[in-house]
């Protein structure tokens, strides 16, 4: 129906959510404002910075370039859910150990995007890590420590598998 407001049913971090949304509300604003999940950040609102990264049906997308109304029937995972489940506990530890975050604004997006690469298995090269994270801006760290942390986790996870 061509209307402005729509009822949507979304599974957010494993919980079923039903809300009436304004079509113009982006997914990241919906998560932050309606569901108080403020771990996903809003930077540029034009797809450039990656601060708003979330997972929709298993793939990392820009939360600012998808509408909440498009997520009807979808599974959305935010940094809160992925952190609570323990899926990225090792990656979070590595970020802390290597000073891969300072202000933390980019961190939720970095973690989710890095996890997408790590979940493919194997040990990616530093070049591959940089390419995969190229759409996530960090204004603090200079990236070196972030690449270090992701590389270290890739190695320990590969080691643990053997």
């Amino acid at each position: 129906m061509s209307e402005r407001f729509h009822e949507v049913a979304v599974t957010v971090n494993g919980e079923d959510v039903r809300e009436r949304v304004d079509a113009r509300k982006t997914l990241v604003d919906f998560l932050r404002e309606e569901l108080a999940l403020t771990g996903s950040h809003v930077g540029c609102e034009q797809g450039v910075c990656g601060a708003c990264s979330v997972r929709v049906d298993g793939v990392v997308v820009r939360g600012c370039l998808m509408l909440a109304v498009q997520c009807d029937g979808a599974r959305v995972d935010t940094i809160e859910g992925v952190a609570d489940s323990g899926e990225i506990a090792d990656l979070q530890q590595a970020f802390i150990a290597r000073n891969a975050l300072q202000c933390g604004y980019c961190t939720p997006g970095m973690l989710l995007t890095a996890q997408e690469l790590l979940a493919r298995g194997g040990v990616p090269s530093r070049k591959q890590i940089r390419a995969h994270l190229s759409g996530n801006y960090c204004r603090c760290t200079g990236y070196q420590a972030i690449v270090d942390a992701v590389e270290a986790v890739a190695k320990t996870r590969a080691e643990a598998k053997r």
Binding site: A23, G47, L67, Q70
Partner: peptide, 22 residues
């Protein structure tokens, strides 16, 4: 939406209706 929603966010375009083909 990787071009269109960015232009909507910036109000570079203001359509009355979005027809989602996904």
């Amino acid at each position: 939406g990787q071009s269109l929603i960015a232009t909507l966010n910036m109000r570079l375009s203001q359509p009355a209706l979005l027809v989602d083909i996904n």
